[in-house]
Amino acid sequence: MTPLLRRDRVFDFLAPPLPPDALLDTRHGPILYLEDISVSFDGFKALDDLSLYIDDGELRCIIGPNGAGKTTMMDVITGRTRPDTGSAWFGSRVDLLRLDEPAIAGAGIGRKFQKPTVFEKLSVVQNLELACHGDKAVWRTLLAALDADQRATVAGVLDTIGLAGHAHREAGALSHGQKQWLEIGMLLTQRPRLLLLDEPVAGMTQEEIERTAELFRALAGAHSVVVVEHDMEFVRSIANKVTVLHEGRVLVEGDMQAVQNDPRVIEVYLGE
C-alpha cells in the first residue's frame, strides 16, 4: 500500500491527482474484486456477503428484482457507502475502501446513476467538458482552459452519443433518453477503465436502446463495463455473462441462456 492511497477524505490541495493506470494492476485477471461485502441499513441487510469479480475488458450484466442490492453494490464500489465487512479492490493494488468518491473516479471508475443526473443548467457541451479527463483541482479549473486533447475527446464523444446537433442546448431541456446518453457521454470523456451503468436504457425508445447496445458492445474490450438493467431484451442483446443478484447475494452467474432457465431465477422472478 503506497502512502498516497492512505488518504481517506483528506484535503489534498497540492497533491497531484493519481496518474491514471499507474496504480491499476490487472495482470492477475480481474479489474474489480468484491469479497464478502455486507451492508446493512438499520439491521436490514442490503448486501449479504456479496462476492463478485469482473474481468478486465469484460461486459457484465447484473440483473435482479427490485431491492436486490444492485445500486447498493455500486455505492460500495464508488465510495458512497462503506460496507460493514468485506473488501473491494480495483485491480490488485487499489483498495477502494480507502478512497473517497473523487479519488475513486480519478483512479478510473465512472458511474452512471439510476436516475439520470446531468447538470441541467449547463449546456450539453459544458457537461461533457466538466466530466472530461484531466486535473480536477480548483486552481486548474480557474486558470487553465481545456487542452487540445481534451477538446478532441469532447468533440468525439459528442458525435458518439449523437448530440452534436444539441451541443449548446441546456441539458435540462433534453428528453429523458438524451439525458441518459449525455450522462453516458460524460462517463466516456472521463476515460474510465471501468464503467458502472445503473439502468442506462430506462426511458429510451427502442431505436435508442439498440444504439446503446451497440455502443456498449463497442466499449467492452478497451473498457470493463458493468450494466445493471431490468430490460431483459436489452440484456440479452449485449450480455455474455449475467449475474443474478437476490437479497444482497449472487444467486446465479452464467450465460444468459443458462441463467434464464435456472429454476432458482425463475422462482425469484415469478415470486415477485
Binding site: F11, P102, A105, F113, F119, L130, L142
Partner: peptide, 22 residues
C-alpha cells in the same frame, strides 16, 4: 471552468463528486 464546476456542485453535488471533483 471553475464557475461551471461550482454551478454543477450546486445542482448535482454527487454527480460532480463522482466525476472526480473534490
Amino acid at each position: 471552468r471553475l464557475g461551471r464546476v461550482v454551478v454543477a456542485v450546486r445542482d448535482a453535488e454527487n454527480r460532480a463528486r463522482f466525476l472526480g471533483y473534490r
